[in-house]
Design a protein around this nucleic acid. Structure first.
Length: 153
DNA sequence: GCCAACGTTGGC
DNA sequence: GCCAACGTTGGC
């Protein structure tokens, strides 16, 4: 069982949005490396939810993979910012994962804390300038993150 | 196939 | 608003 991390700007889609919907389609990914990571996911695997471009930024909860290889409908939608004129229903270029909310942490594990704990070599999230929005989390890193979850009130 | 220009992500 | 990192595009 692999573990993953997915970023979202909370102004666009936050963990509260996911908690309300319970299940979401993670559409709009237009980076081949990120797409390929999504293709590698297996149902049941753990995904950390990361708030990017926020104050503060960090890991705010957990999701679970429901399904992969779902054709991303936004690539065909001319009114969507994710419309891709190079894609067609006959030869779709982008697919994505369906995810379920598992839990929202009582507090955030913020980026400075993650940087103190992990080196860029062991966890690419903490590498400066990293732009990948879907990334693998090594098992040892995942274990340590799970041990860092803030206690509830 | 090379590479310069450009665009995007995301931290600060 | 600035900048680092790096993917994509297009001219040749």
């Amino acid at each position: 069982m692999a573990t993953w991390l997915m970023k979202s700007e909370p102004s666009a889609y936050s963990i509260s949005d996911l908690a309300r919907e319970t299940i979401t389609l993670w559409d709009g990914i237009r980076n081949y490396q990120a797409r390929n990571h999504m293709r590698t996911m297996q149902p049941g695997e753990l995904v950390f939810f990361y708030h990017s471009n926020a104050r503060p930024t960090g890991i705010v909860g957990e999701m679970e993979v429901i399904e992969t290889g779902v054709i991303d409908p936004s690539q065909f939608d001319t009114t969507s910012p994710y419309f891709d004129p190079a894609s067609s229903p006959e030869r779709p270029r982008w697919d994505c994962a369906r995810l379920r909310h598992r839990r929202t942490y009582p507090g955030i594990i913020d980026l400075p804390t993650l940087r103190e704990t992990f080196t860029p070599e062991e966890f690419i999230l903490v590498r400066r300038g990293n732009r990948l929005s879907v990334l693998p989390v090594p098992d040892s890193v995942a274990e340590r993150i799970l041990a860092m979850i803030p206690a509830g009130a």
